[in-house]
């Protein structure tokens, strides 16, 4: 090293004078800059802009007009908004527990099945790979009145009364939710099974030697050790149900979110305000509400379910 001193510095320039550690940092930031710039431009900047737009009246054609809190006042006075808000939470509070309970039950039992294990798991996973739009259209026909609709056909075969399903303000939401739960099941089962496999078998062996019942093993060993998996899936499923759109839109295209707004989630209302009515400011205000709801729910869940 010493020989080069005196001859080299002139050629080395600024870069050459940096230490190895500084160079590493610059390289690291150089690579990180690409995703950071990308995210700032396509994610963070629009998010911040949406906050600003929510205080304006903007139809895309004329420059945004600052109107203060008018969009929020209009939103909180709009009965449709509250109905939609309620629907969004119904999707969440029905969808998340039902789908987690089902997927855990299936994963727990599937874990013990050896016979055709791969095939059964694949069958459960299949709906997850299917396009939501396609599935929604198939289910839409399932729900038709007899003799066209499969479900009503079966009901009438066993002598049960016909159900209106998508034509009812009460049944439509669960009817739309069912295929959404079904579609997400495969993914949750696979994650649960990975979680189950990760629990060391020695715990089970020890429990068996002690002669503990299956129920105790489940509640004392399996469930506590699966907690990280649960946290992940609860957060993941909650966000998915809060953002439900494809199923609703495709199952009710003729009367989006209907009948009488009974299935309309917040995301669909945002879409309609923005791209059917070109009421961008109002749509932005709804987006801000959705953003805050998602934020609060995620934080609450992370706190409640965090390991002490």
């Amino acid at each position: 090293m010493d020989e080069t001193i005196g001859a080299e510095p002139r050629r080395r320039g600024l870069w050459g004078r940096l230490t190895l550690r500084q160079k590493q940092v610059i390289w690291a930031w150089g690579f990180l800059a690409i995703p950071i710039v990308f995210y700032s431009v396509v994610r963070f900047w629009p998010t911040i802009d949406a906050f600003y737009l929510s205080f304006t009246k903007w139809n895309l054609l004329q420059p945004p007009d600052f109107i203060g809190l008018d969009n929020y006042r209009r939103m909180f006075a709009d009965p449709q908004f509250w109905q939609v808000f309620r629907n969004t939470f119904l999707y969440l509070i029905i969808g998340t527990p039902v789908s987690l309970l089902l997927s855990f039950t299936i994963a727990y039992h599937l874990d013990r099945v050896r016979f055709m294990h791969g095939l059964i798991r694949a069958l459960y996973f299949l709906p997850y790979l299917t396009t939501a739009a396609v599935m929604a259209w198939v289910w839409r026909w399932f729900y038709q009145p007899a003799p066209v609709g499969l479900i009503n056909d079966m009901l009438s075969m066993v002598g049960l009364p016909q159900q209106p399903f998508l034509r009812s303000t009460v049944q439509a939401l669960p009817a739309v939710l069912a295929p959404a739960v079904w579609a997400g099941l495969g993914f949750q089962i696979v994650i649960f099974m990975a979680g189950l496999r990760a629990i060391p078998t020695s715990y089970y062996e020890a429990a068996r030697i002690d002669g503990v019942s299956n129920w105790t093993i489940l509640t004392r060993i399996t469930l506590p050790l699966l907690k990280p998996t649960f946290v992940f899936l609860v957060v993941f499923a909650s966000i998915a149900f809060l953002r439900i759109f494809d199923q609703v839109y495709n199952m009710t295209t003729n009367d989006p979110g209907g009948p009488l707004n009974s299935t309309k989630p917040l995301v669909l209302m945002i879409y309609q305000s923005a791209f059917n009515s070109f009421d961008m400011g109002y749509a932005a205000a709804q987006t801000v509400v959705l953003f805050l709801v998602l934020l609060v729910i995620s934080l609450v869940q992370l706190t409640v379910l965090r390991d002490r």
Binding site: P164, R167, T169, D255, P259, L260, N261, Q272, N276, S277
Partner: peptide
């Protein structure tokens, strides 16, 4: 002024009679 929104109002009106 907004065809889809106006159609929706007419559709909801009919559904209130038919369903409710």
């Amino acid at each position: 002024v907004d065809e889809q929104a106006q159609r929706q109002i007419t559709m909801d009106m009919t559904n209130r009679v038919l369903i409710q």
